[in-house]
Design a protein around this nucleic acid. Structure first.
Lengths: 218, 218
DNA sequence: ATAAATTTTTAGACAAAACTAAATATTTGT
DNA sequence: ACAAATATTTAGTTTTGTCTAAAAATTTAT
């Protein structure tokens, strides 16, 4: 697999939402910032190699083999992201570009050892699950914190209300994107939540919880 | 800098022994396992980019800029080697190939952070010095353990006598290539040495010491 | 249902990095 | 010093991945 081939496989995988939908030439071109004609060329090549199913004018999807490949790439990408954040103190929003390069390094041993070194993490810094060596993983879903059941934890990935007062509140309470949040308890009375974040237990209103998105793995 | 360009720069650097000797097209071709004509092509390109000095039929050497580039690559390569050995438990002889890939990753921040994460190591697992960010470093030299002065430490990189009895001795005493050895004291009487290796203090004869190569940075 | 708009593919070209074969320099041996 | 041997370069191709422009298929809108 060349670097370029790997990038196409990954793009097709992500466009297919991990569900292996058929995607169009144009979609791939846009994602990869290249021209549709280039995609046609590459997709033919990948088809010959047995990595994708391609029917002219009808779009492209991954074969079983292609999916396996894509999952390996996703695994590598996410493990490197964990490494960058956990070991090298990168922030959650600056890891993507570097991981994009690191994921192409070819060494099975390297990835196995990295996985071990990191303590076999289940999710990356964005809350997305890391496929196992065999390619198995649970899907991640995005939910409002107010919708998350007690006992579940996830990673803060976004806000619904991005007004200054709300962001200020988050800042004041030291809640940031990328933080892991665990739902400890819910008050029946007002729907307020007791959550754990960065080893602190705090109590937030239902209103706050209804404006924070968590990514959780089911 | 493309991947390929980087490989050429590194090859020219290593062939020049870090002293920036002029090297021939054929030498580069052999080192890179490519054809001399390919080298000519690339060397012209590198010359236009100001990375090498090239005179047809006369050979090629690095410019100041090219040297800077080469040292950055060497720095990256050796830092990754340390990472692989120290953090991922690779053995000293299996790191080269992977480091060869990792050295091409482009991110200054990554290397700075890696350096810090590793505790700013001075030498790689083979005892070769790691250039500083500015490209400064001390040269490494290979010496017989028996020739190393008291107080100096180095890395075991080879044996002079590779007979079975000698290797067996090393094995029994848990001395392996890649180990760091510090010379603690010398007996005037028989030239035997008190050395520290893997946090153990041991006493070895002059004969043993005269058959072990250490790499030390002066 | 058909014309217009859009998407996708084909054909032909280009740049990077390599190769082969032939031509040209340089070095070596007598 | 000159012929032979060796080293290096030049010229012309190849492969990979990209591009543009034109052609063909599909979808959409009336």
């Amino acid at each position: 697999m060349t670097l370029s081939e790997e990038d196409y496989i990954k793009a097709i995988y992500h466009l297919g939402k991990g569900e292996n939908h058929t995607v169009s030439t144009n979609e791939v071109a846009e994602k990869m910032e290249t021209k549709p004609s280039s995609v046609t060329d590459m997709v033919k090549k990948l088809s010959e190699k047995g990595l994708v199913n391609y029917r002219p004018y009808k779009g492209v999807s991954l074969t079983g083999f292609g999916q396996k490949m894509a999952l390996t790439l996703v695994r590598k990408h996410r493990l490197w992201e964990v490494f960058l954040v956990e070991k090298l103190d990168f922030s959650w929003d600056e890891v993507h570009e570097v991981a994009e390069q690191l994921e192409h390094i070819k060494s099975e041993k390297l990835i196995d050892r990295l996985d071990k070194h990191l303590g076999f993490p289940q999710v990356d810094p964005h809350g997305d699950p890391i496929p196992s060596k065999k390619g198995e993983f649970k899907k991640a879903i995005k939910k409002l914190l107010s919708e998350v059941p007690i006992g579940v934890n996830g990673i803060c990935v976004g806000v619904k209300d991005s007004s200054a007062p709300f962001l200020k509140f988050l800042d004041k309470n030291n809640i940031a994107l990328g933080d892991t949040i665990a739902v400890k308890d819910k008050e029946e009375f007002d729907g307020s939540l007791h959550i754990q974040i960065k080893n602190r237990d705090i109590h937030i209103s239902q209103q706050i919880a209804a404006n924070l998105y968590l990514k959780i793995t089911e």
